[in-house]
């Protein structure tokens, strides 16, 4: 990272000690070069959701009001599913995989004996998880297009939003993973991601939550869904800055905590 960019100056001190996190990404790419199937496994889940909506669900529900216009239900839900798949991809990679490397495989011990530091490990792993989530998002987009559900070209604008979702969830995912003590603790992962998936204005608009809407807004995924939906429908609003801000803040906190924890766990 160049030392005079704004991003550099606002980054927390621990992250500024990073030098070459890209080497960690490179290492992972070499590992997956040999087992590419693992990468596309996550592709099927959103595909099945899409199909279920396409085949029947959508027809039952009819149209939805969004930003002052009435849109097809499938068009309403598809961006939310895309946001969720970005979340899932990032969470898969930043939990179990990182836990294994942290507690069992000593991969990080070797990295830390080299010029790489804890911040490189955290940034590199999170970047990797984010990229993996992004692969899911792209495959999702391809499915949408194949099913004729892609809508306008605006849908491409939702890809950067998916990257941001991946970054936020990978950061928080890795940070939480450093606190896990055994594999059993991972039962908590779906216990968190499933309600997020269901109650982030994914399947119905925020207005339908009535007085509970503020709870929905606490969900990080809600902000991701709102961004992706707005982008893919070509609806911009000032609120988008809030969504971006929330996700960036989560990413920064997650990254810093993850780096600190790698330090305390491995540099004893």
């Amino acid at each position: 990272m160049s030392r005079d960019t704004l991003l550099w100056r606002v980054a927390p001190p621990i992250l500024r000690s990073a030098r070459r996190p890209q080497r960690v990404v490179e290492r992972n790419a070499i590992v997956y070069r040999r087992t590419p199937m693992v990468l596309i496994s996550g592709f099927f889940e959103p595909l099945f959701y899409l199909l279920s909506i396409r085949i029947g669900f959508g027809a039952l529900v009819g149209d939805v009001d969004f930003a002052g216009r009435s849109i097809d239900y499938a068009e309403f839900v598809a961006p939310a599913l895309m946001a969720s798949s970005a979340m899932n991809g990032a969470v898969y990679d930043s939990t179990m995989n990182i836990f294994f490397k942290l507690r069992y495989s000593k991969t990080y011990d070797a990295m830390l004996a080299s010029p790489l530091g804890a911040a490189d490990v955290a940034l590199g792993e999170i970047a990797w998880a984010m990229l993996r989530g992004f692969v899911y998002s792209i495959s999702f987009l391809v499915c949408l297009a194949a099913l004729g559900m892609a809508g306008s070209w605006w849908i491409l604008a939702s890809l950067p939003a998916c990257l941001l979702i991946g970054l936020a969830f990978a950061s928080v995912g890795m940070a939480l993973t450093t606190y896990m003590r055994s594999w059993a603790d991972f039962d908590w992962v779906p216990a968190i991601t499933l309600p997020l998936f269901l109650f982030s204005a994914t399947f119905y608009p925020l207005s339908s939550y009535g007085g509970l809407a503020w709870i929905v807004q606490l969900s990080p995924l809600y902000h991701g869904v709102a961004l992706v939906r707005g982008a893919s429908l070509g609806v911009a609003s000032w609120g988008m800055f809030v969504h971006v801000g929330v996700l960036l803040a989560l990413a920064t906190v997650g990254l810093s905590v993850a780096a600190r924890r790698v330090e305390t766990l491995l540099l004893k």
């Binding site: 290492r27 070499i30 590992v31 495989s105 000593k106 991969t107 011990d109 070797a110 004996a113």
Partner: peptide, 12 residues
Amino acid sequence: VVPQADNLDGEL
């Protein structure tokens, strides 16, 4: 560095 306990990369 050659640490006492090997920390080779098992995935490579």
